[in-house]
């Protein structure tokens, strides 16, 4: 349960604060309307200023077409479309999205429904509580957890996380999760510094944050593995993760 302790902090400034949610998509035609609906439900209820920026990387399944329909329903101020021609990677998607973001806070999350928007108000409360530079969702603390993982998947994740904690001591319990809230300037600086791709990119963001002495708050989240579409964790992901881990070990 979220603590209400810090709720009084910064309330006077609430009207000045705005949260830009970045949603990079690739073939999320099924999931996008649901995630947008949920975002509007929870952010609308919480009365924060917000906008949703959809960055579609030329999905062949017509994700962009659905996004346009959503824009017609919810308005151009709430839903911004910043499509790109082809798949260009997560880091550049954030840069691209941020260029058009008018919020002073950025929320990044997956559009595949594994990250539930109901946690965003908790992220915001947490951020206010300690004036954190970053608030990271964690599956591995408190009421956090996962759904849809078999034993093998759990062992790989927990093993990889343990190894990473030992080698990098990053000061956050969930490194490969990508459900986070950043101060905008902090995210800008971090993205400039990060070079990795895929799972390792999220990990590098937290490791570099540590290096730059940014403060990190954590909120337990439940992670419901992809409802539509396929979840990916194969041999090649493990190898690229290991390579990335060693690179960070040697360079940070």
């Amino acid at each position: 349960m979220a603590s209400r302790r810090g709720a009084g902090l910064g309330q006077a400034g609430d009207s000045l604060e705005k949260y830009s949610v970045l949603l990079p998509t690739y073939n999320e035609r099924e999931n996008l309307p649901i995630i947008v609906w949920l975002l509007i439900k929870y952010l609308g209820e919480s009365e924060y200023n917000y906008e949703i920026i959809i960055i579609d990387d030329g999905s062949p399944d017509g994700t962009l077409e659905v996004a346009k329909q959503l824009q017609n329903i919810y308005g151009k101020d709430t839903i911004l479309l910043r499509p790109r021609e082809k798949k260009l990677g997560l880091g550049t998607a954030y840069v691209h999205g941020m260029q058009h973001a008018t919020g002073n806070f950025i929320v990044i999350m997956d559009a595949d429904l594994s990250h539930h928007p109901k946690f965003i108000p908790e992220f915001i409360r947490k951020q206010k509580e300690g004036n954190f530079d970053i608030v990271s969702g964690t599956r591995y603390k408190g009421n956090g957890g996962v759904y849809g993982w078999d034993l093998k998947r759990k062992i790989i994740s927990r093993g990889a996380n343990f190894l990473t904690q030992i080698l990098l001591r990053p000061g956050a319990s969930d490194l490969t999760g990508s459900f986070r809230l950043y101060k905008k300037d902090v995210l800008q600086k971090l993205v400039e510094k990060c070079v990795s791709k895929g799972y390792v990119f999220q990990m590098e963001m937290i490791v570099r944050a540590r290096q730059l002495n940014y403060s990190i708050g954590e909120v337990p989240i439940s992670f419901v593995d992809r409802v539509y579409g396929e979840s990916k964790l194969g041999g090649s992901e493990i190898i690229s993760f290991a390579k990335g881990l060693l690179t960070l070990f040697a360079t940070t």
């Binding site: 309307p33 649901i34 609906w37 949920l38 429904l113 539930h116 599956r139 591995y140 009421n143 956090g144 957890g145 996962v146 759904y147 849809g148 993982w149 034993l151 759990k154 062992i155 927990r158 093993g159 996380n161 343990f162 439940s222 992670f223 419901v224 409802v227």
Partner: peptide, 28 residues
């Protein structure tokens, strides 16, 4: 021991998955 303990205590969020399924129907 640590990894074993953490695997065993990683919470399965059945309730979160159910809630999401309901909300998907509602949203559609």
């Amino acid at each position: 021991a640590t990894v074993g303990f953490r695997v065993a205590t990683l919470r399965d969020c059945e309730d979160a998955a159910r809630e999401l399924q309901e909300q998907i129907r509602e949203a559609r």
